[in-house]
Design a protein around this nucleic acid. Structure first.
Lengths: 259, 259
DNA sequence: TCAAAAGTGTTCCTTATACACCCATGT
DNA sequence: ACATGGGTGTATAAGGAACACTTTTGA
């Protein structure tokens, strides 16, 4: 709580002596739990070890290390707290209420991450302190009768659910819950789990077709007609190279249009 | 990349001794410059005083102060560097490349802000070191032949333009470039400036109608039929209270639907 | 032969867009 | 009278949702 910052222009000269908050990273790592009667979107929690809020279920988080990046920190938090290596994460929002952490001045950069259920269980099935909390109506069902998440992690989950639903309304399984090749039924079930809503099969097929590449291979073994396997089309290759808007149809004065 | 992270739980005990980056805030404050033949979206720059990157045009920015919030810091940066009080800002993204600032380890939280041209000039017209840089095709036209912005502020401007266009595609002038009451022509010209594209008048009217409240008052003085004045409808009051999706139309097994 | 799932054709309906027209005002 | 901008009705096109139907497999 020093009070020696009177010269705002001098702050550029050197950085020493300027206060800086601790930066934490929290990750809402999401997966699709297929064990129930229908697949459910869930968020992975871990039980806190000794220390602050000991024993509580919480999102995996970590303090950023010297000269590390946020995404690196987020991936290490997932690796250390959940035992899952090599996730991909994206920034969501910075939570900066100076009183959010009683231990001191800590800002938290919330991240979202996704992982397939297979990779999730193969790494965590032996761990007692990892739990996949299902999402019901934008909120988490917490284990052990716990009523709330520590800090404002409830808000982080809200952001994460909103963001993943936005992403899944545009593209086929951008979070790679499924492997590289999949049937349209598998894809639709994943999207239904994310959106927590029923999706009509034929409409869904036609919406997703432009973003899928048929492989020519087919599934087999189940009942019914074998389904073709598809692969995600990466956006860069298919996107039209958007014509420059710099000299576009402005000139709204009708003068030179008329003559 | 040390390899001595065996006790992740110990980090929760106290915060002292953990490294923390300096946190800066950069603001892309946008306005609509009406001085040209048609209004243009622009971003406000200021010329850096003595110190690092001295004399360069840059986005207003500032280091966060002890236990201050990010939005506060952003508003103070705008006040100190541009002379404009009481702007509203929103978070965009954290830029965390550890090498982005040669002075040390600094993360920058980019913000977007909006202000009416009137409030902008009434506060800055006497300042030499403030400039409204117009946007052309997602890029800024810099003054004095300057070729680029310092750090990765070019990227911040890209984020800001994309975000403001997203916001203006949904609601009438959410950034309050216009006063509380305005005609549909004024509103359309602002949206055209933001989107940098022509917008058809009748379609625009029908799109915006649900989000506008007619005042019953009319403009006067200009040529043509006087235009009604409208007011923004705030979203909370008009939104249908979204029926709970928790028990929604799942049950995709047709069993109990058929019987 | 039947049930289950894949995949497609078609109809219906909602929505966006453009065009046309009338209205009200200042010059 | 006419130009200018406000505002609305309507025709056309485009898109999405739902239904029906055929195909192909396992039991």
């Amino acid at each position: 709580m020093e009070k020696k910052i009177q010269l705002p222009t001098s702050e550029s000269h050197d950085l020493q002596g300027f206060p800086c908050p601790h930066i934490a990273v929290d990750v809402a790592l999401m997966s699709i739990d297929p064990r129930d009667e229908y697949p459910k979107l869930c968020v992975l929690l871990h039980r806190r070890g000794p220390g602050h809020v000991e024993g509580m279920w919480a999102l995996p988080g970590r303090f950023v290390r010297e000269r590390d990046t946020l995404s690196n920190t987020a991936e290490q938090a997932v690796a250390l707290k959940l035992g899952i290596q090599g996730t991909n994460v994206q920034q969501l929002h910075v939570f900066d209420d100076p009183d959010r952490d009683p231990r001191g001045w800590v800002m938290s950069v919330a991240h979202i991450g996704t992982i397939s259920w297979e990779r999730c269980i193969e790494n965590t099935h032996h761990l007692r302190d990892v739990f996949a909390a299902p999402i019901r109506d934008h909120e988490l069902d917490l284990p052990d009768g716990q009523s709330r998440l520590p800090y404002e992690q409830r808000e982080i989950v809200r952001y994460a659910v909103k963001e993943i639903r936005r992403q899944y309304s545009l593209l086929p399984d951008p979070g790679h819950f499924l492997p590289d090749e999949f049937t349209l039924l598998q894809l639709r079930e994943v999207h239904q789990a994310v959106q927590d809503d029923e999706i009509k099969a034929d409409t869904f097929r036609r919406e997703m077709k432009p973003n899928l590449i048929p492989t020519g291979e087919f599934s087999s073994g189940g009942v019914g007609k074998p389904a073709e396997l598809y692969r995600r089309r990466d956006r860069s290759s298919s996107t039209v190279p958007s014509l420059s808007r710099s000299t576009r149809n402005r000139r709204r004065t009708p003068v030179e249009e008329t003559f």
